[in-house]
């Protein structure tokens, strides 16, 4: 490669990463800015917006509901993802190609279309919209992510380890419990955390199938349609920080014994 690209390429990459972080940075700055409007020059430092968010009872209730959804969703999608990943990587499932496509379908269908389809089915069956419908809907769209994360860990495990265990007299179940299970545990933990984050930030499907109990993402969306206030800034930053902490934990667990 010629000399200019040596400088141009890292420069371009720097710009792209700046582009990716610019919006988050702007929200961060204005969440501490002592003014109702988002405008430069900045008006001084304040924690007012954070205090407002933390003392808002309505948002606190929404946060509670988000947690009540996210916990079962991440447990269910992790367990189901583990089954799917095992079926994909460890066992010669007779319909593997079909199974892989099926697993990706919830990701490939536009969420708004899936949401409306579910609404019709629910109304035809006479099922009330509730947290249960939110949990099932979210689980199925997060399942592809959970499955692929766990499969990415399983695919690196040498199948000869299980064979060796079998040769040494372990039953198939005991070989699974004592060899495969400990090795896939980290993948499941990572999938759990990512699923948790995806569940808390999911909005489109959730807004369609949630009933009277509305999770945080739906509350924030209705606030944000009517006015853009610095409290939303503070809330956004709190959500980002919470999500990042979870993702970081998940990534650390997944990468811990990669090498």
């Amino acid at each position: 490669m010629q000399v200019p690209t040596k400088v141009a390429l890292p420069g371009f990459i720097g710009l792209i990463y700046a582009f990716m972080y610019l919006p988050v940075l702007v929200v961060l700055i204005f969440s501490f800015n002592n003014s109702e409007v988002f405008a430069f020059p900045l008006q001084g430092f304040t924690l007012q917006w954070y205090l407002d968010v933390l003392s808002d009872a309505r948002l606190a209730k929404g946060f509670g509901i988000t947690m009540m959804v996210a916990l079962p969703v991440s447990i269910l999608s992790t367990l189901m993802g583990a089954l799917a990943a095992l079926a994909l990587t460890r066992f010669a499932t007779s319909f593997r190609r079909f199974f892989l496509v099926l697993l990706l379908i919830p990701f490939l269908i536009p969420k708004a279309i899936l949401a409306m389809a579910q609404l019709i089915l629910l109304s035809e069956l006479g099922v009330e919209r509730s947290l249960i419908t939110v949990i099932t809907a979210q689980t199925v769209i997060i399942l592809p992510f959970a499955s692929l994360i766990i499969a990415s860990v399983l695919i690196r495990i040498d199948p000869r380890l299980e064979e060796a265990a079998a040769d040494l007299g372990a039953s198939r179940f005991s070989a699974f419990r004592r060899v495969t299970m400990p090795l896939m545990k980290n993948g499941m933990m990572a999938a759990f955390f990512i699923a948790f984050v995806l569940s808390t930030s999911e909005f489109v499907l959730t807004s369609f199938v949630s009933g009277r109990e509305q999770p945080l993402s739906v509350l924030v969306a209705s606030d944000f349609r009517f006015n853009i206030a610095p409290t939303l800034d503070a809330l956004a930053i709190l959500i980002v920080v919470g999500n990042l902490a979870l993702v970081a934990i998940g990534e650390l667990i997944r990468l811990r014994d990669k090498y």
Binding site: F38, F224, D233
Partner: peptide, 13 residues
């Protein structure tokens, strides 16, 4: 991982 709404909100700001 910031979620759809937070991202759109940030761009609005």
């Amino acid at each position: 991982y910031t979620g759809d709404l937070v991202r759109i909100f940030a761009w609005r700001v």
